[in-house]
């Protein structure tokens, strides 16, 4: 009578990789399918000029989406980013046309964004009011403030060529807004991937009480991510103002929904904890590509919104049903 013990062998590393990154792989696949589809349907879609145009237009969304990824990772939401963009956009135009040098105006606007976000974050983290409510109020307040400032008029920005270069210029053939967006994306990626602060953000979203118990400044971390969406919204507002050469209270209508759709499409969970900065970039670009591609295919712009919405729903449905760990298809395909 002998008893033999054997050890389990480790599973394949490839399978672990696929399981860990299922969400990003699926949105990447979907993004490539979109590129191929629109590339074959339209001759101009894949030209460098058009691709650069897409990135230039997506830049403000991308900048805010990076910060929004952090907010959603803490299981929060910021619905006020579109209104913040409009408010800062108008404020920037007014400040610059009042004769304030544009570099000073930029610093002031970023600080204003940080302050707005800081106040909202304080209500969320220290006062315990749901982020949805706080930022829904913010959505109304800042859009109203923008209307009040401009009285509904568009305010032109003149004699600030350096400022307008930020929105219209190119560096080494690449649009400046795109370069700024790429820098923000890289910074956001590194922060979430390999810094203690990123780790704190994920911990707070994953298990807030656990984060507190291991001594993390949980409330301060939650507050800080709203400061980041504030700053990112201010940056996006500056990019928009510089591209359009004016400030308007009607800027960035529906902006918050585009941003949130991009983040969620990328696989960041609204329940918190689960996060993917690469997914956010791919999700945001996918939405931008779909919008651009449909226009190039001469689909009615009214129809574009419907198609975008349906595709987002389908993509997220696929994400949750087909790509969550198990690859089985059929009854009980999903385990999460």
């Amino acid at each position: 009578m002998s008893t033999t013990y054997t050890e389990r062998v480790a599973g394949s590393a490839l399978r672990d990789f696929v399981t860990d990154f299922a969400q990003v792989l699926s949105i990447a696949t979907f993004f490539i399918i979109c590129l191929v589809f629109f590339g074959t349907m339209s001759d101009v879609f894949l030209t460098p000029a058009n691709l650069l145009n897409i990135v230039r237009q997506a830049a403000p969304i991308l900048v805010v989406a990076v910060a929004m990824t952090m907010v959603i990772t803490t299981a929060g939401i910021d619905l006020s980013v579109g209104s913040q963009v409009a408010f800062i956009n108008a404020l920037a135009a007014i400040t610059i046309s009042a004769g304030v040098p544009w570099p000073v105006a930029i610093v002031l606007m970023l600080a204003a964004g940080a302050m707005i976000g800081g106040v909202q974050g304080w209500f969320v983290s220290y006062q315990g009011i749901p982020a949805f409510i706080v930022t829904l109020a913010g959505l109304s307040i800042y859009r109203g403030a923008a209307l009040l400032l401009t009285e509904g008029y568009s305010i032109p920005i003149r004699d600030a060529d350096g400022f307008l270069w930020l929105g219209r210029g190119t560096l080494l053939g690449i649009p400046v807004p795109a370069l700024i967006a790429v820098l923000v994306v890289i910074a956001g990626f590194v922060v979430m991937w390999r810094t203690p602060y990123g780790r704190q953000i994920i911990a707070c979203g994953s298990n807030l009480e656990a984060a507190r118990r291991v001594g993390m400044p949980a409330r301060r971390v939650v507050n800080s991510v709203y400061v980041l969406t504030g700053v990112a919204s201010a940056l996006a507002a500056l990019l928009l103002a510089a591209r359009l050469g004016s400030g308007s209270s009607n800027a960035a209508q529906g902006f918050e929904l585009q941003v949130i759709a991009g983040v969620v499409l990328g696989g960041t969970s609204l329940m918190g904890g689960k996060t993917s900065m690469i997914g956010t970039v791919l999700g945001t670009l996918t939405i931008a590509v779909i919008g651009n591609g449909l226009i190039l295919m001469h689909v009615s712009p009214f129809f574009t919104q419907i198609v975008t919405g349906v595709i987002i729903l389908l993509a997220i449905w696929m994400n949750t049903r087909l790509f969550t760990g198990t690859w089985k298809i059929g009854k009980g395909a999903s385990n999460g």
Partner: peptide, 29 residues
């Protein structure tokens, strides 16, 4: 050691072991 364990499900094993006292090299984990 808490009864509910107080782990973060979305962080890996290493990250949970060092939660709150992450080792860093410069500004990075």
């Amino acid at each position: 050691v808490y009864q509910d364990l107080s782990l973060c499900d979305h962080i890996d094993v290493v990250g949970n072991l060092f939660l709150g006292r992450e080792m860093t090299k410069g500004p990075f984990l």
